[in-house]
Design a protein around this nucleic acid. Structure first.
Length: 819
RNA sequence: GCCUGCGUGGUGAAAUGGUAGACACGGCGGAUUCAAAAUCCGCUAACGCGAGUUGUGGCGGUUCGAGUCCGCCCGCAGGUACCA
């Protein structure tokens, strides 16, 4: 066994694992469990290095916990619905289903060749009809509970993908997938009422503290965007009401700064506001004004941000407290989909209101001044200060005034305390073929009717033509025609399919179900209770899912809880967000031409090399710079690790050694081995810094190589192959099977005697600066140590006075001196 | 703008407030070889022949002692943005 041949060795163990069902979880729910999950891939065709990093990490956890005796669930699947399958269909004329499942087959082969210890029997693809069946059933439940509804609205529409996008899928005004400019389109679609869970999604973030990266918690918090304030109505004066044919008596506004209420000098409506629309439709505005408003509406959200613009409506409202007349404007910076689409404007204390007031020469009325200072109208004052010109609230601290003014509005019944969220309901309809059909029927008589559960799944037709224009399901000759499930007359199926984020919002629950029950249930309460206790134990994936996927999955968990399917609040106990894989300082991408193909690396070096390099080159949360030379180095280490196992004898028990009889090199080697073990335990528990764990093993190897005691070698390998198995499993199983009958792939005991030293080296520093070293006995008293330190450092002490002596046990001595 | 992170050798990176640079890559030198590859050994923060001096983005502070803690500033990355 001198020659390391990665290819044969890896293939052999992969076969062995498959044959022995080595990675299937047990159904014995009395055992302690670990649920290790990596975010499942979209079957794009081939794995990229980001995937390899992701699954190498989860595999290391899974293998470690198996060694520790846990019942480990480490499943994998494919998030297999989605637009790329259709885009490929348009481009190559392939069928989305064939394209998808061919890719899945190929990628499964890649998983195998990387030695990932996934459960084979729980593999799934979300485009499987069985998966769709249960998903549609959940959708029906959610509709019945009022958590899914249909409404007309202004939607984000990608003209290139010909589909609607959720707010979360619009990045800087562009489509998250194809980067086209997103436009607004008025149409019907289905929404999940995620806003109903806004408060809980926010407050439960505190339950995740410690388990999730702070960064992700902050991102979710900002995305949910809760703000407290005052909502009140601004009422039109009589003249304005008449002008509006008495159709409107006013409009509602929301502010987080009620303390600035006396500084209101105008109010502004969004261009899409209903009052504005009414005026346009009923020709209550002159041509020029209508043109200006239309122009604002047609400007994209990015362009709207460039410069403020607006137009006066010649309407007036009465200030709610002072009853003074306040002019109404239409302003492009007022958003229709936040609050009520209308704002009170206080230019003295708000940047946006200020810019707008400057541009249109509107009055700026200060009501808050800096403590001990004066208000200046040169720029808006937005800090906390003292109220003035605010009637009964004068001299109050502006922070305190907020609550008081809200109270005042509530007492007078002219306004109320309100909370607003940035989070909006999640639009899920997609005008696409390759997705799960929304299981509803449109009946002329009954309206929207849910399909009967026994008819599920409503599967996709396979004989379709995909052109890229419109929705293939809508164009299909027969698919959408059906009978109303309620009254039986001719009806039409909903042709919208669901956003693919719906599938990834519950897949982690599906994995908990025993495959033997897959046909009859989505998952069972009992099994979920076991596997999901404290959530998924380690969830690993890219930071790019910090908002979308993780928020939706949290939402679904809470909904399922309220539907009675499960009994916990949060799906993922611990989250590890891995860094990107870079080459030449940039993210690997086909367009940049800096990709490294995992298959090529496996072919050249083997899977263990790829795995070792990835875990060694950087800690998981950091970016990982690909380095061909260092990959080569990883290969050489494995080869050396394998070949030096000739020094190890065959045994099925860890050798026992009499430490005191060993020579210096032998003792040092043992110490290094056990140091590596201690480090490994820390890594899995909390730090995840596999790089330092591997460095420890390398140090131990270097130390073993300095001695030739075969007991020390054998004990060392017993432990080191156990530590390294999660990282380079093929190599370690080979060594372990040949030398230890696998008995070492089990929890290891730390032997404390190896850390006992008969002399200690202490650093000696003068005024905190390292100068020299002394060698002392471990039980030397401080007096002795200081005396030795002084002698050793005498050169630096000449002519100086020692004013303080500090001994840090086992570390150093610091002498503080002065002239 | 706001919110998170992060700034350490030629490079990837280590370092519970206690001798900065472990481990590895690269580089240099040597052994082996007819030669090369592979392998093995040694050196490798900078400056200096050396004793030594200087060094963790910058400036301060706390401390016997700061890469680490605190304050301000600079730079980079990610997220987010007329959210009233």
């Amino acid at each position: 066994m001198l020659n390391y041949s990665s290819k044969e060795l890896e293939k052999q163990w992969q076969l062995y694992w498959a044959k022995n069902r080595s990675f299937e979880p047990s159904e014995d729910f009395t055992k302690p469990k670990k649920y290790i999950l990596s975010m499942f891939p979209f079957p794009s065709g081939r794995l990229h290095m980001g995937h390899v990093r992701n699954y190498t990490l989860s595999d290391a956890f899974a293998r470690y916990y198996r060694q520790q005796g846990f019942n480990v669930l480490h499943p994998i699947g494919f998030d297999s619905f989605g637009m790329p399958a259709e885009n490929a269909a348009i481009k190559n004329g392939s069928h989305p289903k064939k394209w998808t499942y061919d890719n899945i087959d190929y990628m499964k082969g890649e998983f195998k060749s990387l030695g990932f210890s996934f459960s084979k029997e729980r593999e799934l693809a979300t485009s499987d009809e069985l998966y769709t069946k249960f998903e549609q059933s959940f959708i029906i439940d959610m509709y019945e509970k009022g958590l899914l509804y249909r409404k007309k609205g202004f939607l984000n529409w990608c003209p290139s993908c010909h589909t609607v996008l959720a707010n979360e899928q619009v990045i800087d005004g562009s489509c998250w997938r194809c980067d086209s400019d997103v436009v607004k389109k008025d149409m019907n679609q289905y929404y999940f009422k995620i806003t109903e869970y806004g408060d809980e999604l926010l407050s439960d973030l505190s339950k995740l503290e410690g388990g999730w990266p702070k960064q992700v918690l902050t991102m979710q918090e900002n995305w949910i965007g809760k703000s407290n304030g005052l909502e009140f109505k601004l009422s039109f004066d009589e003249k304005s009401q008449e002008r509006l044919n008495n159709k409107f008596d006013g409009f509602s506004v929301f502010t987080t700064r009620p303390d600035t209420i006396y500084g209101v000098s105008y109010a502004a409506l969004a261009p899409e506001h209903e009052i504005v629309s009414y005026m346009i439709e009923n020709s209550l505005l002159d041509k020029e004004t209508i043109e200006k408003i239309k122009e604002m509406k047609n400007t994209s959200s990015i362009d709207r941000q460039k410069e403020k613009s607006g137009v006066a409506l010649n309407l007036h409202v009465l200030h709610p407290l002072t009853k003074k007349s306040v002019p109404i404007w239409v302003a492009n910076f007022v958003l229709m989909d936040y609050g009520s689409g209308a704002v009170m404007a206080v230019p003295a204390h708000d940047e946006r209101d200020f810019d707008f007031a400057k541009k249109y020469d509107l009055p700026i009325k200060g009501v808050i001044k800096p403590f001990g200072g004066e208000f200046s109208a040169d720029k808006p004052f937005t800090d906390v200060g003292e109220l003035f010109d605010s009637e009964m609230f004068n001299t109050l601290n502006s922070k305190e005034a907020q609550a008081k003014i809200i109270e005042h509005f509530e007492d007078k019944k002219i306004g109320k305390k309100t909370t607003n969220f940035k989070l909006k309901d999640w639009g899920v309809s997609r005008q696409r073929y390759w997705g799960a059909p929304i299981p509803f029927v449109h009946c002329h008589d009954c309206g929207i009717v849910m399909e009967k559960k026994e008819n599920l799944p409503i599967a996709l037709p396979e004989d379709i033509v995909i052109t890229g224009e419109g929705n293939p399901l809508d164009h299909h000759p027969t698919w959408k025609h059906c009978k109303c499930p309620k009254c039986g007359i001719d009806a039409v199926r909903e042709t919208d399919t669901m956003d693919t984020f719906v599938e990834s919002s519950w897949y982690f629950l599906r994995f908990c179900a025993s495959p033997k029950n897959w046909q009859i249930e989505a998952f069972s309460k009992e099994q979920i209770k076991y596997w999901m206790h404290q959530g998924v134990d380690h969830y690993i994936g890219g930071i790019e899912h910090a908002i979308l996927h993780l928020l939706y999955a949290r939402f679904f968990t809470k909904v399922f809880r309220d539907l009675g399917y499960l009994e916990f609040d949060e799906p993922f106990g611990r989250l590890l967000t891995q860094g990107m894989v870079l080459k030449d300082g940039a993210k690997m991408s086909k367009s940049k031409g800096n990709t490294v193909d995992p298959d090529a690396i496996i072919e050249k070096y083997g899977a263990d090399t790829a795995r070792l390099f990835i875990l060694f080159a950087a800690p998981p949360t950091q970016e990982l710079e690909w380095n061909d030379n260092a990959v080569d180095g990883a290969y050489k280490f494995i080869k050396r690790f394998f070949e030096r196992s000739v020094n190890v004898y065959k045994t099925d028990k860890i050798p026992t050694l009499e430490h005191s009889k060993l020579n210096k090199e032998e003792k040092f080697a043992r110490k290094k081995v056990y140091e590596a073990l201690v480090r490994a335990e820390d890594v899995y528990r909390e730090k995840y810094t596999f790089n330092t764990m591997i460095a420890g093993v390398m140090e131990a190897m270097n130390a073993l190589n300095l001695q030739s005691n075969s007991d020390v070698w054998s004990e060392g390998y017993w432990i080191l192959t156990s530590i390294m198995e999660p990282v380079i499993p093929h190599t370690c199983w080979e060594i372990s099977s040949q030398k230890f009958s696998f008995a070492n792939l089990a929890p290891q005991r730390v032997v404390d005697e190896v850390f006992v030293e008969n002399t200690l080296i202490l650093g000696v520093s003068i005024n905190g600066k390292a100068r020299t070293e002394i060698e002392v006995s471990p039980d030397a008293t401080n007096d002795v140590i200081i005396a030795m330190a002084k002698e050793s450092a005498s050169k630096w002490l000449e002519g100086k006075t020692i004013i303080k002596e500090i001994v840090v046990p086992k570390k150093l001595v610091n002498l503080v001196i002065k002239d």
